[in-house]
Design a protein around this nucleic acid. Structure first.
Lengths: 245, 245
DNA sequence: TTGATTTTGTTGCACGCTGTTACAATCAGA
DNA sequence: TCTGATTGTAACAGCGTGCAACAAAATCAA
């Protein structure tokens, strides 16, 4: 089995970052999400083996999201919540969650649960692969996930390197959501399994600058890929996805 | 003013108890609540000057409750949450919360915030940002809250830094109302998550000076952003707001 | 394999933003 | 008027970011 890919869904940047990093260190590929929208983007963008879903997601409700996801596809879901009361737990199981963990949790416990669920999922061979979303559109641009091509509003073909493409994907999957450099770096590592090799220096900054140079009209005054000083970067553009026919 | 009556809304018995007791010792009347229902009961039963509302309320959502309360009446609300990330903070402000405090908080800080909000409320000057307002116009100037752009009467685009923008927002939300440096500083903190330490030195004065330099015709003799000696600053210009369509 | 080309990470410097400080200017009250 | 408090502001420092230039690594072609 390939390295499991987990979605970490939590709308708190710090919590999300900590969990993502911890899981990453534990040998998983952890992808940060913060909304149902970003979950679906990730599901469309690639294989997802397990979703760690926080129950309290700002104005969204994790239990409801879980219910909807369950109706549509077969991704294993572990609900994470600060609510440990029994009836909440039951509510979680009733909507099809594979497990339920109360915050704050012991990291080792989290790992154990994750492995258990992955193990079950592996046996029942219920790994979900991408739906057929093939095209992302934003601010006149488009990105074809199948051909891996980026097209400018004027119709020019723009060549992006692998990392640049990976960065763009992360951004497209998380529009309007500030991402820390750490979160971005984690997501970029998806290709190589090497978990070390990152965290040093300003690679993300430079990468962002390079992507800006290719997709921003005026790289000096970026309008889509904006800096969130003291935090990281945000992609401020509405993103539409299109299914392949 | 009579002794302020506060509602302490938290679904955790211990937290609720500690906060209630602490506020009581600090000279307030603190009434414990644990749900939207009990809040409404208290509101119906008597005067309430301020609500301290936990964001995580079992299966209820503090932000949503705040939004509903705000639509119906004019009670000041301070949201309390373990989620400290900026976008949560912003979500709080967008639904009309008067302030936002992250747990765990310094008791003194809580008191300071409570007093500040009560103080503002007393003068019916709440720093509420209305959600759907997109454009502010004043003395020929205009500020687009969506694009974050300021345009001079002559049509020039004026670039403001983050803090300058934040200051302008506070002023626009409270025209003709003298604001203390502390109130301003509290509002500016929306950006920087550090709720611990502000208040040191003359940062506000300098910031005001810088904003004056950008939006006053003659910064030496300010006409809009005036000094209220011994108090703070007032924005003396009529402000028209435009709702987004 | 080798060498060329492309991609990616690192480093150093410049620049903008922000808070601090020190001193000048101004104000209020005696 | 004098005096002390308050405010204006220039100068400076610290920090984070943008970016060019370089170095290392990966990829490709033969």
């Amino acid at each position: 089995m390939a390295i499991p890919r987990l979605l970490v869904v939590d709308d708190d940047v710090e919590t999300r970052g900590m969990m993502t990093q911890f899981l990453h260190q534990s040998g998983f590929i952890a992808l940060p999400c913060d909304s149902e929208h970003s979950i679906r983007a990730q599901l469309d963008a690639g294989r997802v083996d397990l979703i760690l879903l926080d129950v309290m997601l700002g104005d969204e409700n994790g239990v409801e999201i879980c219910e909807r996801l369950r109706r549509e596809q077969d991704v294993p879901v572990i609900l994470v919540s600060a609510l440990s009361a029994d009836h909440h737990r039951m509510a979680g199981y009733q909507v099809g969650a594979d497990d339920y963990i109360a915050k704050p949790f012991n990291p080792e416990l989290l790992l154990a649960r994750v492995r258990a669920v992955l193990h079950r999922a592996q046996r029942s061979a219920s790994l979900v692969y991408r739906r057929s979303v093939s095209t992302f559109r934003f601010a006149g641009w488009s990105y074809d996930a199948k051909l891996d091509e980026v097209t400018s509003p004027q119709g020019y073909q723009v060549a992006l390197s692998r990392k640049e493409t990976a960065l763009l994907k992360v951004l497209l999957a998380n529009p309007h959501i500030p991402l820390t450099r750490e979160e971005i770096a984690t997501s970029l590592d998806v290709t190589g399994e090497g978990q070390g090799a990152e965290a040093s220096g300003r690679a993300i900054d430079v990468l962002v600058g390079r992507l800006r140079g290719k997709i921003e009209n005026d790289p000096k005054h970026p309008e889509m890929l904006r800096t969130e000083r003291g935090t990281g970067y945000v992609f401020t553009a509405d993103v539409q996805t299109e299914e392949a026919s």
